[in-house]
């Protein structure tokens, strides 16, 4: 995160920003629904750097969620689901209809899930929900994420890596790598989905410079 300071003109044209949102210079947030599911009570819950374009982004940030976004980021209709922490670097581009989540939102254990279903129902208004695992998502500088991708909890996307459109990423991606598929695997210098993991693919830079 760098150069987060209040914008001189309003970055969002649908009313005042929540007071715990800090937006840098020349950053633009579009869509009326941007903060419809913004519930964080953390101070500085959402910090966005300068010169970013947040076009149609859903900032669905839970009560304890914190999101940091660097400078010169470009997101189109991205859904950010945060219960703990999303840290996104600078020069990150994310395509249409991509979802990033740092929680599964419900427990895995069947008995716990029954307790959660009841707590979520109108009948269980006074019951506390069970603890749900959350793990921060870290997206480093210069990452490109294609449209319709999904990034799940605990994932770290290394600097400059590329995530193919439609991928579902469940594990860390090394810096400079290119991944695709569900679950996402390294792509062998091709852009076509590959045939699954290959022994040499970890950490190999995927930039096909001439």
């Amino acid at each position: 995160m760098s150069s987060s300071h209040p914008a001189s003109s309003s970055p969002w044209s649908h009313g005042p920003l929540p007071s715990n949102v800090i937006v840098g210079d020349n950053t633009l947030i579009t869509a009326e629904y941007a903060f419809r599911r913004f519930q964080s009570r953390e101070p500085g819950a959402l910090r966005i750097g300068a010169h970013c374009t947040m076009d149609g982004v859903h900032f669905a940030i839970g009560a304890e969620g914190r999101v940091g976004i660097g400078d010169y980021c470009y997101f189109t209709n991205v859904i950010l689901l945060c219960e703990l922490e999303l840290q996104i670097g600078s020069y990150v581009a994310i395509g249409w209809n991509t979802t990033i989540a740092d929680s599964d939102f419900h427990p895995l254990d069947p008995a716990q899930r029954i307790a959660d279903a009841v707590a979520c129902s109108p009948l269980g208004a006074s019951r506390a929900r069970p603890a749900i695992p959350r793990r921060a998502v870290l997206i480093e500088d210069d990452v490109w994420i294609g449209p319709c991708a999904t990034i799940l909890k605990g994932v770290r996307l290394g600097a400059g890596c590329r995530v193919q459109a439609g991928s579902l990423v469940t594990r860390d991606v090394p810096a400079g790598a290119s991944v695709g598929g569900n679950p996402a695997h390294p792509l062998e210098g091709r852009d076509d989905g590959g045939e699954g993991p290959s022994p040499s693919a970890g950490g190999k830079p995927a930039t096909d410079a001439p």
């Binding site: 633009l28 010169h51 374009t53 470009y74 210069d142 400079g176």
Partner: peptide, 15 residues
Amino acid sequence: TDPVARRAALSLVSS
């Protein structure tokens, strides 16, 4: 695909 070239485009688009 080259991150350096991507930076150039992302620097321009906000203006």
